[in-house]
C-alpha cells in the first residue's frame, strides 16, 4: 500500500470522532432492538400455550367442547368451559377491514385523482393539508364520532337491528384510513412526470384517457403501496372498532351484524384476565398473530410494488 509509509497517526480521525460514530451506530441499533423486544415479549407470554397445553384454543378448525355435541367456532372466554375459537375474530376483523377498504378505496382514489389531475395547483395546496389533518385525528375521537353520529345515522337509514355493528365501525374506520390512502396515492399521481401527460395529450388522447391509460398505470406502484398501508392501518386499528363494532363475536357475514376484531378483543379482555392464565396467553397469541399479519402484509406489499415498478421501468434501482 502506498499510504503505509505515511505516519499513520497524523491523518487519523480523532478518538472523539470515532467514539461518536460508534455511539450513534449503537443508538441506531435500538430500532432493531425494539422490534426484537416486541416480538420476544409478546411471544414469551403466548408460547407457553403450546408446551403447557391448552384447553379451549381453536385456531382454525372448529372445536368440540365438553357438553357440546358437535364442534363449533366460538369465542367465549368467560363461558364454562372457556372457549377460545379464534375464527369468529378473524371473520370479524376481515369483515370490518374489508368493508372499510371497500368504502375508503374508491373514495380516496377518486378524490386523489381529482386533486392531482383536475384541480388547480393553488387549490390543491390547501385542500391536501386539510385531508392530511384528518389523518392525525386520534382514533378514540373517531370511535366517539361513530358512537354519537354514525351509529344513529346508519340505523335511521338502514334500520339495523343493532345500533352498533360492523358497518358503523367500518364507516368510522374509513375516516381513519381514507386520508392515509389519499395522501400517499395523491403523491404517487402527482409524481407522474408532466412529460408523460403531455405526450399523451399531444397524441390526441382525452383527459380521461390520459388518466386511465398513462397516469394511473405509471402511479400504480405508489397507489398499491397506499392501499397496503391503509389496509395495515385498518387491521391494526383498535379504539374505533372497540367502541363502534358492537363487539359480539358472531359468525355472521352480514355488514349490519355485530363483529369483534382481534385488536378489540385484546383491548377489551386483557385487563380482566389474570396473568399467566390460558385466556391471558391466548390474548398475547392474538397479538402475535396481528404482528405476523402486518409483517406479511408489508412484505407481500413491498414485493408486489417492486415487481410492478420494475415492470414499468426495468432499469428501476433494486434498493428503491
Amino acid at each position: 500500500m502506498s499510504t503505509s509509509r505515511k505516519p499513520r497517526r497524523r491523518f487519523r480521525r480523532s478518538l472523539g470522532e470515532r467514539i461518536a460514530e460508534r455511539a450513534l451506530a449503537l443508538v441506531a441499533a435500538s430500532a432493531i432492538g425494539a422490534i426484537t423486544l416486541i416480538l420476544v415479549f409478546v411471544v414469551r407470554e403466548a408460547l407457553p400455550l403450546f408446551w403447557d397445553g391448552h384447553e379451549g384454543l381453536a385456531l382454525a378448525a372448529p372445536h368440540r367442547y365438553p357438553n357440546y355435541d358437535h364442534p363449533v367456532y366460538v369465542w367465549q372466554p368467560v363461558g364454562y368451559p372457556p372457549k377460545y375459537g379464534v375464527v369468529p375474530l378473524f371473520v370479524g376483523t376481515l369483515k370490518i377491514t374489508g368493508l372499510a377498504m371497500a368504502i375508503s378505496t374508491p373514495l380516496s382514489l377518486l378524490a386523489a385523482i381529482y386533486v392531482a389531475e383536475l384541480m388547480r395547483p393553488r387549490r390543491r395546496a390547501w385542500i391536501k393539508p386539510i385531508i392530511e389533518l384528518v389523518a392525525g385525528v386520534p382514533s378514540v375521537v373517531l370511535g366517539f364520532i361513530a358512537l354519537t353520529y354514525i351509529a344513529g345515522a346508519t340505523q335511521d337509514l338502514l334500520g339495523c337491528t343493532y345500533r352498533l355493528n360492523a358497518l358503523v365501525a367500518a364507516i368510522a374506520l374509513s375516516l381513519a384510513v381514507l386520508p392515509v390512502i389519499f395522501t400517499v396515492a395523491e403523491d404517487a399521481l402527482h409524481g407522474v412526470p408532466l412529460a408523460l401527460r403531455e405526450a399523451s395529450l399531444a397524441l390526441g388522447a382525452r383527459r380521461y384517457q390520459t388518466v386511465t391509460r398513462v397516469v394511473l398505470p405509471a402511479a400504480l406502484p405508489g397507489i398499491l403501496a397506499a392501499l397496503v398501508l391503509g389496509f395495515g392501518r385498518a387491521i391494526g386499528e383498535t379504539m374505533i372498532v372497540l367502541m363502534a363494532s358492537g363487539n359480539a363475536a358472531v359468525l355472521d357475514p352480514s355488514p349490519t351484524s355485530s363483529a369483534r376484531t382481534l385488536t378489540a378483543t385484546i383491548a377489551a379482555e386483557l385487563g380482566e384476565s389474570p396473568r399467566g392464565s390460558e385466556h391471558w396467553r391466548v390474548l398475547f397469541l392474538l397479538g402475535m398473530i396481528l404482528l405476523l399479519i402486518t409483517w406479511a402484509l408489508d412484505a407481500v406489499g413491498r414485493i408486489v410494488v417492486r415487481r410492478l415498478a420494475r415492470r414499468l421501468d426495468p432499469s428501476t434501482d433494486e434498493g428503491a
Binding site: A195, E198, G204, V214, A218, L312
Partner: peptide, 20 residues
C-alpha cells in the same frame, strides 16, 4: 383541441416514452 392535436403531432425536447 383533441382533433387539432390528432392532425398536428408533437415531438418534445426530451424524449418521453410511456413506461410501456
Amino acid at each position: 383541441p383533441v382533433e387539432v392535436r390528432r392532425k398536428v403531432g408533437m415531438v418534445f425536447q426530451r424524449s418521453n416514452p410511456f413506461p410501456k
